[in-house]
Design a binder for these strands. Structure first.
Lengths: 131, 131
DNA sequence: TATGCACCCTCCAGTAACTGTAGGGTCAAG
DNA sequence: CTTGACCCTACAGTTACTGGAGGGTGCATA
């Protein structure tokens, strides 16, 4: 029932190189090896990788993921720190949305200025030029 | 009236190293040098740098900026290409906003699951774990 | 004249999170 | 015994800068 790196990759939608990268930076433990030097994994590592990928999918940085994994190991601790990480991440995302929305409005206004003529008269380029 | 690199930096809110980087990748022309080997710039380069920074501020990649600068040099061309670049950029930003909004909703749901107890019971970590 | 200080120079390394490639080994099936 | 799928290591490249080491320039002041 030993899993190879490709099995983990398939099961989690992760590239093989990415799994090796996670191992390199210490997010995944050094796995056992077969006689032929192939990495072998157990279900626990598969769960850990799934956790990492789900967290990454939600936009957490690898450093945050590392913290979350560290917290998850202390089952008797308060989960306040977990909540804090999640809330701050959400705040950061909302800031990003606000920034992008402002950009979107600005772009909309600039695009409207296009006179569909020549570059020389282009309102878009003019809007990008120094006032 | 020759401008030094620090003058350009001050006038555009750009770090000196960033200006040298733009020169290195060919976004800014190789400037004249003083006897003491200091870069000297004219108003035209200042305008070019301002254009770059304004475009970057609107989220255009350096490759797009390069295209826009290239188009701006052909004053008699149609500005259709300029409009296309701007519209596609806007589309990309709107996709990003949609993605982040989806993330935001998902995070909100996950955060609600926190029971404020121990890590072992934490609904956030559970939501991050493989189903 | 010496000194201090702000500014300039080049070159190189590091950031985040992978992705791709070169050059080779392992293993089961046909 | 060969083919093909899979695995291995090691290293370079991506984006757009940012920071630092180690040293030179130029102007004003004591």
């Amino acid at each position: 029932m030993a899993l190879k790196i490709g099995d983990l990759a398939n099961a989690t939608g992760t590239k093989v190189q990415t799994i090796r990268y996670y191992e390199e930076i210490g997010l995944l433990p050094l796995p056992a090896r077969t006689e032929g030097n192939f990495r072998t994994y157990d279900k626990e590592t598969l769960r850990r990788l799934s956790f990492i990928r789900r967290s990454r999918g939600l936009g957490f940085s690898l450093d945050r993921v590392r913290e979350l994994l560290g917290l998850a190991d202390h089952r008797d601790w308060s989960c306040t720190a977990v909540e804090t990480i999640a809330r701050e991440h959400r705040k950061a995302i909302e800031r990003k949305i606000a920034d992008l929305s402002a950009l979107d409005h600005e772009l909309a206004q600039i695009i409207e200025k296009c006179g569909h003529g020549t570059v020389a008269e282009c309102g878009i380029l003019e809007a990008l030029s120094p006032s």
